[in-house]
């Protein structure tokens, strides 16, 4: 009997040591689910979800404090991706958070800008360039279209414009000729 007790004791001790070692050495920094959620979010940092940026929203989703349908810029694609990641059912975008819109960029009317720097302080990605009492301008390439600079502007000189279509960003559209056969094709696919 002693042999069995000692053997089991040694085994238990060894496993305990191994587990303890693994807990210390192989610890995961941060929550990996948050990283994955954050990677799906569009990083607009607009705060329409009710959180101060995409990362806090990702943390809230991971903690179960927020739903997956609160991100208008991510749209339906984003919700579907989140649903797939978290193993939930996709649901329509919550209208309280806003509606899905085409991508826009902010433009400052430079003739009316008074150089108050309020928009610079509001921009979550530092995409507005300028200094006090000097004209400001938006770096279009860095602008996420979050609209956070619109409200603080005291002279209403910032407006949103849709991103212009050029040869570089033009896309082939979804073929339309196929609509007649849709029902039967979907049955075949199912």
């Amino acid at each position: 009997m002693w042999v069995a007790v000692i053997a089991l004791g040694v085994l238990a001790g060894a496993s305990g040591l191994m587990l303890g070692f693994a807990a210390v050495r192989l610890r995961v920094e941060g929550d990996p689910v948050v990283e994955k959620i954050d990677a799906i979010l569009p990083q607009t940092q607009c705060g329409q979800c009710g959180f101060a940026g995409c990362r806090p929203y990702a943390e809230a989703i991971a903690a179960g404090e927020a739903d997956i349908n609160q991100c208008p810029p991510g749209g339906e694609t984003g919700i579907v991706a989140l649903a797939e990641l978290l193993g939930r059912d996709p649901k329509p975008l919550n209208p309280e958070n806003g509606a899905e819109k085409p991508k826009m960029v902010a433009v400052i009317d430079e003739r009316n800008c008074i150089g108050c720097t309020l928009c610079i302080q509001a921009c979550p990605v530092d995409a507005i360039l300028g200094a006090a009492k000097h004209m400001h301008t938006v770096i279009a390439k860095e602008c996420t279209g979050c609209e956070l600079c619109i409200a603080p502007c005291p002279v209403d000189c910032i407006y949103m414009t849709p991103i212009a279509q050029t040869i570089a960003n033009w896309k082939w559209t979804y073929p339309l000729a196929d609509t007649g056969a849709r029902g039967s094709v979907e049955q075949a696919a199912a």
């Binding site: 954050d38 979010l41 569009p42 990083q43 607009t44 940092q45 940026g53 995409c54 990362r55 979550p124 990605v125 530092d126 995409a127 860095e142 996420t144």
Partner: peptide
């Protein structure tokens, strides 16, 4: 790629 850039810029800010 654009989202990644925005994330980095937001982080830096």
């Amino acid at each position: 790629q654009k989202a990644e850039l925005a994330r980095q810029r937001h982080q830096a800010r």
